[in-house]
Design a protein around this nucleic acid. Structure first.
Length: 276
DNA sequence: AAAAGAGCCAACCGCTCGTAT
DNA sequence: GATACGAGCGGTTGGCTCTTT
């Protein structure tokens, strides 16, 4: 037996709210407060709506100090930064932006901000093969990658024929680029994209001193970059994807374009790659 | 001017979590 | 500890508006 419905679906109105309904809801909440029992509210307020619908309408539209309209650059930055850190936890992100609702931010991210920030902002210091990898040959590439690494059950993020990067500023991740030249790998971290010659062990390779900063802002990003260059060797960070997940991630990117990693496994967010 | 496609956003759905019993 | 239930959350959708052809 399933769970009892929260309201009588047959007798509740759906769809856009009318001004009269808005007034009823506002009046009721102004008189009795927003807290309490949302399920019982519609009946008390004389509304033919589901309690959840009332709650949503109040939180996203009717409550005081709601901010609608254009997001500022500062708000953009906060959203991007938090998304990079915690992912799509919209309610938490909204809590950092007074007047904004989680729904608003979610819509804004999905329709505008995501496209905006995924525009490549810099050119890599080398040329990638121009032809796009075909779906049919993708499996060969990452299969051979697995074979070489002798890691049959896990693999680091691999982006065949793609330039990979991360917008995450807190966590370090290394993504790999595996172009036709088998001896070259590209590693991306939260602060930099590097490339180098693969050594015997997958994941350890010599930095060819062609690292460059992902961001040109002052602060820890640049410091981190220097630190990496001092070390000379970039170590691998296994992200623990199994083969099927890698296939899924890569193919869901359509052979190019972008995808977002599952941060619960990768420990990073905002990972994306571009094809050239 | 009309049709088609893309963009946008309010609202819904179904799930998880926390709490009371 | 098990169960029931409301609150809250994130993903998705439907339909309206805007833009392009």
């Amino acid at each position: 037996m399933g769970r009892a419905p929260c309201c009588d679906k047959a007798n509740v109105k759906k769809g856009p709210w009318s001004p009269e309904e808005d007034e009823k809801l506002k009046d009721f909440i102004n008189n009795y407060g927003p807290a309490g029992n949302w399920i019982a509210l519609p009946q008390k307020a004389g509304l033919k709506r589901c309690g959840k619908s009332c709650r949503l309408r109040w939180l996203n539209y009717l409550r005081p100090n709601i901010k609608h309209g254009q997001f500022s650059d500062d708000e953009d930055r906060i959203i991007c930064s938090l998304y990079g850190t915690i992912g799509s936890r919209w309610s938490i992100i909204a809590s950092q932006l007074p007047g904004r609702t989680d729904n608003d931010i979610k819509n804004y991210w999905n329709t505008k901000l995501k496209k905006k920030i995924l525009q490549p902002r810099f050119q890599p210091p080398f040329s990638f093969p121009l032809q796009l990898q075909t779906q049919s040959s993708l499996s060969h590439l990452y299969t051979s990658f697995l074979d070489q690494s002798s890691a049959a059950d896990s693999i680091s993020f691999l982006a065949p024929h793609n330039y990979c990067s991360s917008s995450n500023q807190n966590e370090d991740f290394h993504g790999y680029y595996n172009p036709m030249k088998d001896n070259m790998l590209v590693s991306g971290s939260c602060s930099q994209i590097s490339y180098g010659v693969k050594s015997e062990e997958i994941g350890n390779f010599q930095d060819r001193n062609n690292s460059f900063a992902l961001e040109d802002q002052p602060g820890s990003i640049v410091d981190h970059h220097k630190q990496k260059q001092r070390n000379g060797v970039l170590e691998n960070t296994q992200l623990q994807y199994d083969l099927e997940e890698v296939k899924q991630l890569i193919t869901s990117g359509g052979g190019g374009g972008l995808f977002f990693a599952d941060e619960s496994k990768a420990g990073v967010m905002g990972m994306h790659y571009f094809s050239y």
